[in-house]
Design a protein around this nucleic acid. Structure first.
Lengths: 110, 110
DNA sequence: CGGATAGTCAAGGAGTTACTTAACTATCCG
DNA sequence: CGGATAGTTAAGTAACTCCTTGACTATCCG
């Protein structure tokens, strides 16, 4: 879980995932539009593969990478679990707290 | 988006979110179970609030934090968008690519 | 008032991350 | 074979992250 979110926390890696969501690609194809050296791309891909977000197979001298949807789905599940209990009762509570009468020093947040 | 995922990439901040998913809490209440100094907790909360994942209001000398579900939902949306086009056709394509018998070399820059 | 409580600001330092270049291996093609 | 292509490894560096301590402000309560 930690690995997955750390992997997604980088904009370059997210770009790679967005590209892979449109179809498999080689390491070079992934590196080229990102203005980045090949070794840099490799490191990112290793992070993504380590996190279980992509899979890659090497045929000849070309390594083809593809998305692994299970990884993304795991994150979605965690997110859903965190926001389930609250959802819309939060705003009411927020308003309640913000309007506590005995607090002249409390400027409106913002 | 970048801020949100960077915020979620830290285990301590995820613990905070899980705690807040069970109800609002003060800065001290969040820091205590995490064996962490108060300033450290503050920095994490600032990151979370900056990312739009939590909201906080100060009443008296106590700052009460609460979850902001919209932030988590934004991430869920992005994740869903990435894995929609593929889902299960990926495995078939992967097998296909892995079994290509020959290797044409003319793909890259000419 | 004066002490304790809750939070905040400001450096500073240990550890990690993301990139680079250089050197190297493996594959393809003529 | 031999040159070019695709990827990989290794080492080094600049920038960032997380946490700490110390000093400070604001609030509560006796």
């Amino acid at each position: 879980m930690d690995q997955v979110l750390k992997a997604l926390a980088d904009a370059t890696r997210r770009d790679m995932i967005e590209r892979l969501a449109r179809g498999p690609a080689s390491v070079g194809e992934l590196a080229q539009p990102l203005t980045m050296s090949l070794p840099a791309a490799m490191q990112h891909l290793q992070v993504l593969e380590n996190a279980g977000l992509i899979r890659s197979t090497k045929v000849g001298r070309v390594r083809t990478c593809q998305l692994e949807p299970a990884g993304l789905r795991m994150v979605e599940n965690w997110l859903g679990r965190q926001r389930t209990p609250w959802e819309h009762s939060l705003d009411l509570l927020g308003d309640f707290l913000a309007q506590q009468p005995e607090n002249p020093d409390e400027g409106a947040r913002s």
